[in-house]
Amino acid sequence: MQSPDIRRVVMSRRGFLLRITALCAVIAVPMARWIRQTEDTRVVQALRGRYYPGPVRPLDQESVSRPGKWAG
């Protein structure tokens, strides 16, 4: 049986480093993007909304003067 060409099986140092770098880039680049996306958009205080998205009606002064039906 003929033995395989050792140069085709064994990886060169340059090849190994290239592959490791490529692998790291594949993992690190999307992760960095994701981290940056979430890090940059952490918000505590919201902007004051100008428009209420539901139906709007004037305050009923008569109902204000009565205790609320809600708990609390």
Binding site: A46, Y52, V56, L59, S63, S65
Partner: peptide, 28 residues
């Protein structure tokens, strides 16, 4: 009620109470 509108967090109920009443403080 805290909504992402075009990449900005907006409190959409700001200035719009759904209920306002005069209660005894003991009710709280």
């Amino acid at each position: 009620i805290r909504v992402n509108l075009d990449g900005r967090l907006v409190a959409v109920t700001y200035g719009h109470p759904c209920t306002v009443h005069v209660d005894p403080i003991e009710k709280k």
